[in-house]
Design a protein around this nucleic acid. Structure first.
Ligand SMILES: [Zn+2]
Ligand SMILES: [Zn+2]
Ligand SMILES: [Zn+2]
Ligand SMILES: [Zn+2]
Lengths: 150, 150
DNA sequence: TTTACTATTGATAATGATTTTCATTATGCA
DNA sequence: TGCATAATGAAAATCATTATCAATAGTAAA
């Protein structure tokens, strides 16, 4: 864990350096705080959390930094059709997609190698070089199904 | 084609009636215009197109009607991460997902039965009753790959 | 058909998320 | 140390979408 955190810090620093940008206290704090989150957070939610540590941090800095982290491949943007983007840490070897309950928002992360292969095959068939994908499954979780049948 | 259009009109009318809502000239025009589109359009784009026919149509009516069409299962909302929602007609038997070029926006529609099956299996495995999904593959189309290699 | 009721519309204001602007502050290097 | 450049935060601006509301149109009963 400490190792992983150091990794993302290093990755981010190098990413920044590549385009003559600098690591700063704010960026470091945002990275550290994102990595701590158990759930997928919006920039706004992260901002609220960050303010507890750094009273003076600004909205713009959070939004800007999340964009950078996404570009650097450290954060992944998720869009569950809620109107705002959510973020999750996206360290190596942890790719997954999401199964979301349309009633309670509860969600499950899954990885299906077979699907990933098929996606690659589809892209290739059409002459595309695949770079990324988003796959969200929407349904009703068992708890909410029960609630409804009452 | 004439048959299909009559179908969606009927479906929409019945959907509206179910909740004591009415078919109107504006709603009919919006439905007809959506069905004519070859590409996935945003509500704003559709509004611009509609104004050519009905000078007095309002923004709100277009947004409201698109929501209704989506609820009625006649239109499908697509989110390619652009900041605005796109719509496409979603008549029976035409489900598909999208492969989008991140450089030029060109996109291909595809349907992979195997993936659809696997998605169902995943939902089932986690106790979810699957209702919908969105799957977008992002990559570089062959044309843009060439352009880059120059 | 009149009347009374209800739904729809479009202009406009409001909202919410995100981005831009810009003066101020911090950082890295000569 | 001192300049050149990048980053920050407050506030304004933007963009997509939604809510408000008075005016209009459709429906159905009398
Ligand atoms: Zn995946
Ligand atoms: Zn996740
Ligand atoms: Zn599909
Ligand atoms: Zn399509």
């Amino acid at each position: 864990m400490a190792a992983k955190q150091k990794d993302t810090y290093k990755i981010f620093t190098e990413f920044l350096a590549e385009q003559k940008q600098r690591m700063t206290n704010q960026r470091e704090l945002i990275l550290k705080t994102l990595c701590k989150q158990k759930k997928h957070v919006t920039a706004e939610q992260l901002y609220e959390i960050l303010k507890k540590t750094d009273k003076s941090i600004g909205h713009a800095t959070v939004y800007r930094t999340m964009k950078l982290l996404a570009e650097a491949g450290i954060a992944r943007e998720l869009n569950f059709g809620e109107g705002s983007v959510r973020y999750e840490p996206d360290t190596d070897n942890t790719h997954h997609d999401h199964l979301v309950c349309v009633d309670c928002g509860e969600n499950v992360e899954f990885f299906d190698e077979e699907i990933e292969k098929l996606q690659n095959a589809i892209a290739e068939k059409h002459g595309y070089k695949l770079q990324d994908h988003s796959m969200n499954l929407y349904g009703t979780c068992s708890k909410c199904q029960e609630k409804k049948s009452n």
